[in-house]
């Protein structure tokens, strides 16, 4: 019997029974593995950390993409940083109004391997609106000004190749790269285990310094540590819930398995302990 195990903390482990290993490679940046499992379907891991499973990836990708798109339906130019698996791009491609999606992924191999082994996730990467750039996100964003309506930071954890995407200089550069009504949404770690909570607080603090509106919303992802995960919603103009034209989004008739408008509004209501963690780092 073969098991994939990830240490969620030094004292907690999470395991998935694996049928077989489909792929393994040490790329220039990280170790990439793909497993086949009975319970979760295919599983992508980077440096031994679970990135997505076919069974629950829809939750993550729907919530990172549709929340900002519902708030800002006129978004035409979108930048995705990280997200080489293509899941976020797949959700964005459901909007006919989006004209351009730039995907900046540091590791080209993640994209190649996702196309080969995770076709259900990577299916939209060939969409003509999608342009892939294989470089450091921090470097890419530095050279961009007043260019995007929406930036989605679909990053790994704040250690390893994604480190630079949790820094103040990165968030500041994102602010600069957005139009004056632009939105940035980011993978915001988890409030539950202490290490993740520190990372979440640091990210929140830094985003608050760069954006006038900085809110956090929550989501339930069964295969991530504690299952309780957060996204950041940072914005130059629009509030994530107030004055949102819910009907306009419904009229788009986009089919989702997780996202809906009441859930969108509700996801910004946070448990007290999370509110406190966030308030602690707000000035």
């Amino acid at each position: 019997m073969l098991w994939f195990t990830e240490q969620h903390t030094p004292n907690v482990r999470f395991s998935i029974k694996v049928d077989r290993q489909l792929f393994s490679e040490q790329s220039e940046f990280q170790r990439i593995d793909v497993f086949e499992s009975e319970e979760f379907g295919r599983v992508l891991t980077l440096d031994g950390y679970l990135m997505l499973t076919e069974k629950d990836e829809f939750i993550y990708h729907e919530m990172i993409a549709h929340v900002p798109m519902c708030v800002h339906p006129q978004a035409k130019n979108v930048l995705v940083i990280g997200g080489g698996d293509g899941g976020t791009v797949r959700e964005l491609c459901k909007y006919k109004t989006i004209e351009k999606i730039d995907l900046v992924e540091i590791d080209e191999r993640v994209v190649d391997i996702s196309k080969l082994y995770l076709p259900k996730v990577a299916c939209a990467l060939e969409d003509p609106r999608v342009h892939c750039y294989y470089e450091d996100g921090l470097k890419f964003i530095r050279h961009v000004e007043d260019e995007y309506d929406l930036i989605i930071v679909d990053s790994t954890d704040p250690f390893g190749p994604g480190e630079g995407l949790f820094t103040k200089e990165f968030y500041g550069n994102c602010f600069k790269a957005l139009h004056e009504d632009g939105i940035m949404v980011n993978q915001h770690e988890s409030p539950f285990y202490q290490e993740d909570a520190y990372a979440m607080q640091r990210a929140h603090k830094r985003i608050c310094h760069s954006f006038p509106i900085s809110r956090v919303y929550q989501v339930h992802i069964p295969t991530y540590p504690s299952g309780h995960w957060l996204f950041g919603f940072a914005s130059r103009k629009y509030h994530p819930v107030k004055e949102v034209n819910w009907q306009a989004w419904k009229d788009l008739r986009i089919r989702c398995r997780y996202y809906n408008c009441p859930l969108h509004a509700g996801s910004f209501a946070l448990p007290n302990y999370v509110e406190e963690l966030l308030r602690d780092v707000e000035d």
Binding site: R142, P161, E163, N173
Partner: peptide
């Protein structure tokens, strides 16, 4: 990646 951080921070 640390060099990128330094350069980006200087830009900011």
């Amino acid at each position: 990646k640390d060099i990128e951080r330094l350069v980006s921070a200087l830009a900011e």
